[in-house]
Design a protein around this nucleic acid. Structure first.
Length: 708
DNA sequence: CAGTGAGCGAGCTTCCGCTTGACTT
């Protein structure tokens, strides 16, 4: 083509949210198209003020998000070269708003620019092509719903938080999502603490027929389920059945189909990764992000999985074809005639596919050498879940046999897998169930009883929330989004509302105080159904074009009145958190108190602000011979480092440990014990002295009580 | 597995939801 060298050919510009996505799409579209990424929202309310004019129809004031000016500039620069612009942000409420804001910015600079909105729900060449061929207008109803959501969250957060500053402590926060999450955790804590485990016993019979031994359990006695609550009663039963005949009364056979699970959504991935590997949601997302962005395999950089923040189990047709071909080739016989279909969740916005491998033929083992161990584990999880989701169900036979012994009925059962189905694709996810095998028996047969024993159990109460279970609960109630599940937990921990100990999330005293205050004063907002009712209203804005200002106004007027009332009348509980200590101030003689600061707890003079004396919380005596120092919590330089424990006499004394000290002295050497935990032993305490091997594992009963 | 060292309270703090990096808060 004869063109001046300095006059570049005009292109079509596509704007998406994720840079990794931009790269992929660029490959699909090739020359003639430029693809650039906004990296999420570019415009938002400023953080420093409410920025909503409540007197004037809740008019929001938007600014360019700090740090995003460069990206906006880049987009405008690219736009200059473009003939047409396609706004291709995600196909959901937030995506629509992102497109809308970018469009406005573009029009300010290029009033005549041809700008169109396109949407696609999967990143495949055909889906992109189709989207480009059928451009649309921005859906202003969706934009309005997002705006209403944003404004409501700002109003709730920025009106409730100052109440906490005034009544409890500066710097605290409250919000539609975090406060309800906190409530769930507080209530669960209470249930766990209120639960009293009840002791009960089961009677197990060791039975034998020929060479085959198996166990059966007493399930009925004189027509009723036996209630055995202590050792003595268990012994009575054992004595009663000892030496008696066990005769087969009934043999039941049942076939069971186990269907594979749907491919991962974000929350399901976080849950599986937490239960399988013990990863926090944040860690899971960090690893998943690297798999999504791309890993060097040979000389190639390959994005191994699809987008990781999704609420959908849907997969692209091309992916379905690929996985079916893969199954046909590698697991012949396990390919169902028709694809397995998974219904999308009711609350799913469905902008993205499920999380799946981008290339199913890249099996975990084939890429193992290019991955870190953590990447490998997570990729295996995703790959196995995806491949198995399109395979045949597992068929198994459950045999249940009942034995009559005097007035007692003993039952045993065994499961045998007849057809392995999708289990064939599972390695990491393979079920660990071990099941006994039973001899073939028929009604009337008599078996030998070689032993009878009682087994002690305790009823299991509710469990503390974990990363996995709180996310599950929030998702079920429609609270939070895939991109916020991990940050929700982080914010509760950062604010000292919640602590995570051995994977368990427990509310702190501060968390409980905040929760009680909010539940008492704002029960509507603290209701777990609040978000659901907001969603319904947003839906009406989005689908029926109901006016968003009215929706916000109906919420705000009574809310605001209450805020004013609470601000004025609620009694301040500032200082309730300050704990008395045994220390007296060495500067002024007043007692010292333990307070919660920005970086954790510290000890300060109660004469503040008259006396500014303060010090760290001593956790234990320094064990170094001759050292009079105390062990205190410290952080690595640079704000957010990992906590460790060192001596107040540093640098004279360089004692250090990374495990939380207790003020319990080691009975062997006099050093203090530290808390540790691992999978095998659970919680335990060990001596910090590397030359001492003292270890204290928690007692059984104690654990049963705390297990919950 | 090895790894390491202020401050903090009153003085401006806080939301939820999109996206990724990061020397400054």
């Amino acid at each position: 083509m004869a063109k001046k060298a300095n006059k570049a050919k005009k292109i079509n510009l596509l704007i998406v949210e994720s840079p990794a996505k931009a790269k992929t799409i660029q490959k699909y579209l090739g020359n003639g198209y430029g693809v650039t990424a906004s990296i999420g929202h570019l415009f938002d309310l400023p953080r420093s003020r409410l920025a909503i004019d409540v007197e004037n129809n809740f008019k929001p004031e938007y600014i360019t998000i700090r740090g995003k000016a460069k990206i906006l500039k880049e987009i405008l620069k690219e736009a200059k070269k473009a003939e047409r612009i396609f706004l291709a942000s995600d196909n959901d409420r937030e995506g629509e708003a992102i497109s809308y804001h970018i469009r406005n910015a573009l029009l300010r600079k290029f009033p005549d620019m041809s700008i169109m909105r396109i949407v696609f729900n999967e990143i495949t060449p055909t889906a992109i092509q189709k989207a480009v061929e059928s451009p649309m207008e921005i859906d202003i109803k969706k934009v309005n719903a997002q705006k209403a959501r944003r404004i409501l969250d700002r109003l709730v957060g920025y009106k409730l938080s100052p109440i906490l500053w005034k009544k409890v402590k500066n710097g605290l926060s409250a919000g539609r999502v975090q406060s309800v999450a906190l409530r769930l955790i507080c209530e669960r804590d209470r249930e766990v603490e209120a639960f009293i485990p009840r002791e009960y016993w089961t009677i197990e019979a060791q039975l034998k027929k020929g060479k085959k031994a198996f166990t059966a359990q007493l399930v009925q006695y004189r027509g009723e389920k036996p209630e055995i609550s202590n050792y003595e009663d268990a012994q009575k039963f054992i004595a009663f059945f000892k030496g008696k005949d066990f005769r087969v009364q009934e043999v039941k056979e049942k076939e069971k189909l186990t269907r594979p699970l749907a491919p991962f959504t974000t929350s399901k991935l976080q849950q599986a990764s937490a239960t399988r590997f013990g990863y926090t949601s944040r860690k899971t997302m960090r690893i998943a992000q690297t798999l999504y962005e791309g890993v060097n395999i040979g000389f190639e950089r390959v994005g191994l999985i699809t987008y990781i923040r999704t609420d959908s189990t849907r997969i692209a047709q091309t992916a379905l074809d690929a996985v079916r071909a893969f199954i046909f080739k590698n697991y012949p016989g396990e390919l169902p005639e028709k694809p397995n279909i998974y219904a999308p969740g009711k609350k799913a916005q469905d902008a993205h596919e499920a999380i799946r491998p981008t290339y199913v033929e890249k099996t975990p083992d084939s890429v193992k050498s290019s991955l870190t161990p953590e990447q490998f584990k997570l990729y295996s999880l995703i790959w196995e879940r995806f491949v198995s989701s399109q395979m045949s169900p597992v068929k198994s036979r459950i045999v249940t046999i009942e034995f009559l012994c005097e007035q007692g009925i003993f039952r045993t059962s065994a499961t045998r897998i007849l057809e392995k189905g999708f289990y064939k694709a599972l390695k990491l996810l393979a079920p660990k169930e071990k099941t006994q095998t039973l001899p073939s028996l028929s009604k009337g047969d008599i078996v030998e009883c070689t032993d009878l024993a009682g087994e002690q159990h305790f009823t299991q109460g509710p469990s503390y929330y974990t990363d996995a279970s709180i996310i599950k609960a929030l998702e079920e109630k429609g609270i939070g989004r895939p991109s916020t599940y991990a940050p929700i937990i982080s914010v509760l921990i950062d604010r000292y509302y919640v602590v995570r100990k051995n994977k368990k999330l427990k509310a702190t005293v501060l968390g409980k105080i905040i929760n009680d205050l909010l539940v008492k004063t704002f029960p509507e907002i603290m209701d777990v159904n609040f978000t659901a009712s907001v969603e319904q209203k947003l839906d009406r804005v989005e689908t029926n074009d109901e006016p968003w200002v009215q929706m916000i106004s109906e919420f705000y007027m009574p809310f605001h009145q209450k805020v004013e009332h609470v601000m004025e009348h609620l009694e301040s509980i500032k200082g309730v958190l300050d704990e008395e200590t045994e220390y007296t101030c060495e500067k002024c003689g007043k007692p010292m108190v333990k307070k919660l600061g920005r970086y954790g707890f510290f000890i300060a003079c109660s004469g503040f602000p008259g006396c500014m004396n303060s010090k760290a919380v001593p956790l234990a005596d320094c064990p170094r011979p001759g050292c009079k120092g105390k062990i205190i919590a410290k952080r690595k330089q640079g704000s957010r480092g990992k906590v460790f424990y060192g001596c107040t006499e540093y640098p004279a004394c360089d004692f250090v440990t990374y495990f939380p000290p207790t003020n319990v002295k080691c009975p062997h050497c006099g050093y203090f014990l530290v808390e540790r935990s691992d999978k095998k032993r659970g919680d335990y305490k060990v001596c910090v002295n590397p030359e001492c091997d003292y270890m204290h594992v928690q007692e059984q009963e104690e654990e049963a009580k705390n297990a919950g």
